[in-house]
Write a protein that binds this DNA or RNA. Structure first.
Length: 424
RNA sequence: GCCGCCGUAGCUCAGUUAGGUAGAGCGGCUGGCUGUUAACCAGUCGGUCAUAGGUUCAAGUCCUAUCGGCGGCGCCA
């Protein structure tokens, strides 16, 4: 039975059988204490010198897999309050000396990530990650969205960026996607409200605690909507995920040393300021930014410190936004775009209205120095029943890093890929 | 792309200021211990001081180059 069910007190004074791995071993002349873990929790097992399990217990090592049969006893001396008095112990896989002990560095743990993933800490983070994915899908589904599966191999740049990973595709050159947005835009013409949770790849040589080269992108796209609809959807999505996490993941947050009150207190509507207001606020802080300049991380941090919670900056200058961003018809220098920012991490989401006028889009593609030919199918979407639409992309790992107050984004994903790390 | 920091035992580190016999704790192994809480006590094993070159009577320590890692900025989610 699951270890957690024993810790919940369901088997007091009853016979149980557990299976798992040795987490700690403490040896005395009369008693061997084995702390055993499974996916649900950890429990202390005692093996007495006169128990038939003694000889097996003596030779077992940390991280060996085993089964134990015994009797559950309530005992205040045991961590967790319950322990299993072992009567039978079978070693399944005897472990070599486990390299991870109490002294460990970030670097070492990254080198042996395949073993570090067994840790209590990573176990907890991965459970919260799974729950956050579930809460996200829950929200999209409630709002009538259809989950779709975009391609990872793509033939042309999504944003015309130089940050694409190229690869050999038989005898052609292809890229790994850096956003599924353009493909979601195709699907709104039939399914209307669509979303995906899929990897995005960025060949940016960033060395920070908030960048991965492969990350999971939560993207939504839907027609007949404007900027207000977009920001409202995004803030409600985040609020839903945070509220559900506060309800369901309290234990995980606590064990990870994260504060649930932060996510529990996320409420809509979020503060929203325009790019122009942001420039003014920065000016008031003594940070001079000319209108039209993009914000750096320090600028975002200064703004985020002021709010201390998630907020939006919207209506950015067209010049610093991608070609597909829709512009205000009476103010073409301003793009209908919105970034969601959180303290410490900065941007966790970017979204906006997409240009739906074929001629304006062609003009923008040319202005950005891109080739019209590469976007033929994208332009087709504007030729056949174009429709105003909006969409956004949110970084799952940035969201988790913020929610759980992780020191580094790499711990929000089991197998992080960074500029230097891709093993295992 | 720019800037900063780090590399000594399986692991965590001291030793680098001011060149002079390679150290500790943890882990392993051996023994001890009547209930431990990442146990404790004693003993013991364990080294290409990242690599290459240079200075010097003498280099872990100083100099040069290279390799590897971490972080900050830029860029981005």
């Amino acid at each position: 039975m699951p270890i957690q069910s024993i810790l919940d007190g369901k088997y007091e004074d009853k016979s149980v059988a557990i299976r798992g791995w040795v987490y700690r071993k403490r040896e005395g002349k009369q008693t061997i204490f084995l702390v055993v873990r499974d996916s649900t929790g950890v429990i202390q097992c005692t093996v007495k010198a006169d128990s038939p399990a003694w000889s097996e217990a003596e030779k077992i090592t940390i991280e060996s897999s085993l089964t134990i049969e015994g009797t559950v006893k309530k005992d205040q001396r045991a961590p967790g309050g319950y322990e299993v008095s072992a009567e039978k112990l079978s070693v399944i896989g005897l472990a070599d000396v486990f390299p991870i002990s109490k002294d460990k560095s970030e670097e070492f743990l990254r080198d042996i990530r395949h073993l570090w993933l067994r840790s209590r800490r990573m176990n907890l983070v991965m459970k919260v990650r799974a729950d956050v994915l579930e809460f996200t899908r829950e929200f999209f589904k409630d709002q009538g969205f259809v989950e779709v599966s975009p391609p990872m191999f793509i033939s042309a740049a999504v944003e015309g960026g130089s940050t694409l990973f190229g690869l050999k595709y038989f005898d052609q050159n292809l890229y790994l996607t850096q956003s599924s947005q353009l493909y979601l835009e195709i699907l709104i013409y039939s399914l209307e409200k669509v979303y995906c949770i899929a990897p995005s790849f960025r060949a940016e040589k960033s060395r920070t605690i908030r960048h991965l080269t492969e990350y999971w992108h939560i993207e939504g796209e839907w027609p007949f909507a404007d900027m207000n609809d977009l920001m409202q959807f995004e803030e409600e999505l985040l609020a839903h995920v945070c509220k559900r996490a506060a309800e369901k993941c309290g234990k995980e947050f606590e064990e990870l040393g994260a504060d649930t009150s932060k996510v529990a207190s996320v409420e809509t509507p979020f503060p929203k300021i325009t790019y122009t207001e942001a420039v003014e606020r920065l000016k008031a802080k003594g940070i001079e930014r000319k209108w039209g300049e993009d914000f750096g991380y320090d600028d975002e941090k200064a703004l985020a410190d002021e709010f201390g919670k998630p907020f939006f900056v919207y209506d950015y200058p067209t010049a610093i936004k991608a070609f597909y961003c829709k512009t205000y018809r009476n103010h073409p220098e301003v793009a209908m775009s919105a970034d969601m920012l959180v303290p410490r991490i900065g941007e966790i989401s970017t979204g906006g209205a997409r240009e739906d006028d074929k001629d304006v889009l062609i003009k923008r593609i040319r202005e950005m120095g891109l080739s019209e030919k590469d976007y033929d199918w994208y332009l087709d979407l504007r030729r056949y029943g174009t429709v105003p639409h909006v969409g956004f992309g949110m970084g799952l790992e940035r969201l988790l890093t913020w929610m759980l107050d992780l020191e580094n984004i790499i711990d929000s994903i089991p197998f992080p890929r960074t500029i230097r790390r891709f093993y295992p």
